[in-house]
Amino acid sequence: MTRRLRLWVLTAGLLATAALYVAACTDLPAFGGSWHPYGDRAVRAALQQHTANAVSSVNFDQRAFDTLGEETVLFSSVLGTVVLLRRTRGEKRVAPGPAEVPAALRRYGLLVLPVTLLIGLYVIAHGQLSPGGGFQGGVVVATSLHLLYIAVDYKALERIRPLGLFELADGTGEAAYILLGAAGLIAGSAYLANTLPLGTFNTLSSGGTVPLLNAAVGVEVTSAVVVLLAHFLGQALEIESEDGAKDGGREA
C-alpha cells in the first residue's frame, strides 16, 4: 500500500475517531465532580479492612484478582523476553571491556546504591500505609542494583547478580502470590479472601494479607526487572554473532 494511500486511510480514521471521542466527552460528567460511588464504597471497605492506603487495599484486597493478572502479565513478559533474547546457535558471548569511569562517579555509585536499596525496601514495606507498594518499590530496588553498571561497570554488576537465583525468585514470587490466595480458600472463605487478622490501623502489620501480597509482588517485580535488564544488557553488550563480519541471521 503506497505511503499516500496509507496517509489517506490514517487521516480518515483519526478524524472519525476524534469526532466519536469528542462527542463522547461532551456527555461525560464535568471534570472534578463529586459523584464517585465505587470510590466511596472502596474507601469504606479499605478502612473496614484497616488498610491506610486505600489504593493498596483496592489493589491487593478488593480487586486482588486484577493484580494477580497484572503480575502474571509481568511474569510472562519476562519469560517471553528470556525466550526471545536467548543466545541462538550462531552467537557467542564476549565479555565487554571495563568502562573507564571517573572516581567521583564510582564513589557516588557505591554510596548511593545502599541508600536506594533502603528506599526501595521502605517503599515496599510501607505499601499499605504511605504511597508506594510492591511494584514501585520492586522497580526502585532493581534500579539500585543496576547503579553498579551505570556508575561502575558491567563486570561489577554481574558479580552481584546471579541470574539463576533471580529467576528462582521470580517464579517463587508469582507462586507465593497464588498460594497466598489459596490460603483464603483453605480458611473456608473465597479465593484471595483476606482472612488473616487485620491488626491495628496505620501500623506496619495492618491489613491482613495486604502486606504479604505486597511483599510477594515486591520480590517478583525486583527479580523480574533484574532478569529483564540482564537479557537486554546481555544482547547489547555481550552477545556477538560467531564470526564478527557475518551476522548470525540472514545475510543482508
Binding site: L68, T72, F75, S76, L79, E167, L168, D170, G171, T172, E174, A175, I178, L179, G181, A182, Y191
Partner: peptide, 13 residues
C-alpha cells in the same frame, strides 16, 4: 489459577 501456578513452578525450577 492452576495453569499459572504450573508455569510459576516450571520457571522457578
Amino acid at each position: 489459577v492452576v495453569p499459572l501456578l504450573g508455569a510459576a513452578v516450571l520457571v522457578a525450577a
